[in-house]
């Protein structure tokens, strides 16, 4: 099970309110949020890419757009941002996600179906705590 909760770094300690239903001894993974600077740049690049590719049918042209390539270049920090973006507005982020993570969770049955491709990546994200 994956649940997102907020924690705060105080000195070198992590302060977190543990939900009441978390059992004693449960294992917890911690993923840090991307830096605000990267989040801001990501938002700028998404806006540039959406504007620059809105009339295109070509996946080749979409994924070689300079903004898309820069998003791939952000590396693993871009993955939770891309998944959030997919939650907000499904779009063609699948090639970027595969390029960064090295995996493709989209089953053959979802081929070409943007909604199901999105669902496959969001499920992958949940399995990885993202």
């Amino acid at each position: 099970m994956t649940t997102m909760i907020k924690a705060t770094i105080k000195g070198r300690r992590l302060e977190v309110d543990v939900p009441d239903d978390w059992p004693e001894g449960a294992e917890v993974e911690i993923h840090s949020a991307p830096e605000p600077r990267i989040q801001q740049r990501f938002r700028e690049l998404v806006a540039q890419w959406k504007q620059g590719t809105r009339l295109l049918s070509s996946i080749h042209d979409m994924v070689t757009h300079p903004a898309y390539l820069e998003i791939i270049g952000l590396g693993k920090e871009a993955v939770p941002l891309l998944l959030d973006e997919l939650r907000r507005e499904p779009d063609h982020w699948f090639v970027a996600l595969q390029a960064i993570t090295g995996t493709n969770p989209i089953p053959p049955s979802a081929c070409g179906d943007v909604e199901n491709m999105t669902e496959a990546w969001l499920s992958w994200g949940e399995q990885h705590g993202l």
Binding site: S58, A110, V114
Partner: peptide, 10 residues
């Protein structure tokens, strides 16, 4: 569906 002859199998 989105049809395009991209090498990505999706």
């Amino acid at each position: 569906q989105w049809w395009w002859p991209y090498q990505h199998p999706a």
